[in-house]
Amino acid sequence: MRLAVIMAGFGGQGVMSMGQLLAYAGMFEGKEVTWLPSYGPEMRGGTANCTVIVSDEPVASPVETKPDACIIMNRPSLDRFEGAVVPGGLLVINTSLCDKPASRGDLRVVALPATDLAAELGDVRVANMVALGAFLAVEPVVQAASVVDALKKALPAHRQNLIPLNERALALGAETARAQLTA
């Protein structure tokens, strides 16, 4: 098993931390992982992206030009990365901030309003967790419980109170994705 996912969105949407949590979760499950961020001017406010690879074998290259999946948090990211995904790969699109549908017909697509769903949960900042939950429902490369474990390790003591909210966000994303796939 080897899965490469690119996560992309505006700076501030939690794209980098979403990737780190996936990498942490993979490591907790004993898998090989790499997390490679874009670190150019985009991290100062433009579009940001990171590449996460989770594998049973040591990861050769941390760079992936043909990812198995992309989590698209805004419209510019769809324009940039849709063409890169391998045929049959997965696109998770945050329709709250992406008004264009996927144009390719050879991909599996989960389109969900992650930012609006997060707002309904009470905090738009967990939009990344909604999207990650949707992704993991389709590509269960790690257990959602491992992501929660990762969050417990990553958050400082005074932020541990945010864990239930993040768990709800992951679950809501997963439910939404499953409903779409069975519809």
Binding site: Q20, A23, M27, V33, T34, W35, L36, P37, Y39, P62
Partner: peptide, 10 residues
């Protein structure tokens, strides 16, 4: 290089 410095691995 920049990549090695910026990337995360266990």
């Amino acid at each position: 290089d920049g990549m090695l410095g910026q990337m995360m691995e266990p």
